[in-house]
Nucleic acid binder design. Sequence first.
DNA 1: ATGCCATACGTTGTATGA
Length: 294
Amino acid sequence: MRIATWNVNSLKARLEKLEWWIARAEPDVVLLQETKVSDDNVPREALEKLGYAVCHHGEKSGRNGVAIASRVGLADVVTNFGQPLAVARTEAPDDEPFAEARMIAATCGDVRVVSIYAPNGRKLGSPFYDAKLVWFDRLAAWLAREHSPSDALLIGGDYNVAPADADVWDPAACHGGTHVSPKERAAFERLIAWGLVDAYRLRHTEKERYSWWDYRAGLFHKNYGMRIDHLLVTARLGERVVWSEIDREARKGKPVPSDHAPVLLDLDAPGKALDPGWSSADQRIGERRAKARK
DNA sequence: ATGCCATACGTTGTATGA
């Protein structure tokens, strides 16, 4: 079974690219983030036509939004940690600072999957940064309450955290910012300590393998990015992971790509062969930069 | 070479992203 996660940066704007990518990668389950549509405006028919059932958790505002598309079953959907989404910030409980659609879970085949979109944090010490940490607290509490490390559980999505210095293009430049701060990394490590493992790192040890690159300043072409999209799995699933990749090809070309690339894994047996585009040319970019630093 | 910011909302700009 192939499971993928992709922050598509608008499901509407990315629909054609998503259809192309589904044909390319043939995933059984796709976790989506930043759909930026309300529940009423999800392009369900297009995905159903490809054989996928869809569940979605969005906002009327057209911000955030998470979804799961599956061609191996879709059952027992839970949104927003099992609580109703507060309709306005003023109505949000203390543990839900901004009432945003950032979590949806479902059972697909024999795996419980969770699609998450962690808050950005904006700036260290800002209310948005504090809210990001509170959101990770909620995730950890929900996990402890509803699940056991012995479950066949996968939590995938845009964590907005680069777990290690090897996951950012320049640690010196990145330190002092969000995504790499000790508190954010501790929030990520807390999930690991509970009983999850980074599926990409089960199969890859390379540095400079990113899942997000800013649209601006040609940063993608210089491979200045961060690895912030992750598939975390329990040990029970980890031992079934036979392949994992970040599909850098999906960040290229026309129509306009998302600023994130999909992250994939195969359970039990390899899926469709896929060259993820970490070409020798990209290797040379890394080597040139390493030289320039010396 | 893969190519130099994009999305929604709404109106000719503003908020947001990471």
